[in-house]
């Protein structure tokens, strides 16, 4: 065994308040264990997802981004998820042009009752991004092994 720890991807998730965030809560209530690599940012609707959020997350050190919204037709705000879907396709194309594998950005429709889907999707995505390896971007910050140092300095 080598001394350097195996690569553990860092994934930022944007979950809509009504379906996917609630599903993630349900996964918790049901004690469904899953990989700890995903950190959720709550937005009211997946339609709030500005492509800049994804780009920023990748630039700030994320190796992947997961977006979760209500199933088509179920949006709490009628059609925010459709609007996000359109942006998502454009965004994927753009990321490709930057040389970012489009498997690093994933969109899933997860309803409030699908706690098990949260577990499955997160585990799948973590495994997938782990296989892809770290996202190599010029100027991307390296993970701080000890953030307290960073802040003590700040």
């Amino acid at each position: 065994m080598s001394d350097t720890p195996a690569f553990e991807p860092r994934i930022v998730a944007f979950f809509c308040n009504w379906c996917t965030y609630t599903a993630a809560d349900l996964a918790g209530t049901a004690r469904l264990t899953y990989a700890p690599n995903v950190r959720v940012v709550r937005i009211m609707c997946s339609g709030r997802l500005d492509p800049q959020f994804v780009v920023t997350a990748l630039r700030q050190g994320a190796d992947g981004v997961l977006i979760g919204g209500c199933h088509p037709g179920d949006c709490h705000y009628q059609e925010g998820n459709y609007k996000m879907l359109r942006r998502f396709h454009l965004l994927k194309r753009m990321l490709k042009q930057f040389g970012i594998d489009d498997q690093r950005v994933r969109l899933e429709w997860i309803s409030a009752s699908e706690g098990d889907k949260v577990q499955r999707v997160i585990n799948e995505m973590v495994a997938q991004v782990r296989d892809l390896g770290p996202l190599a971007l010029v100027g991307k910050p390296t993970p701080h092994p000890d953030a307290s140092e960073k802040h003590a300095a700040a």
């Binding site: 609707c45 997802l49 500005d50 492509p51 705000y77 609007k83």
Partner: peptide
């Protein structure tokens, strides 16, 4: 209603 879709756009 506060969905934020306009903000993203």
């Amino acid at each position: 209603k506060g969905c934020g879709t306009c903000v993203a756009a």
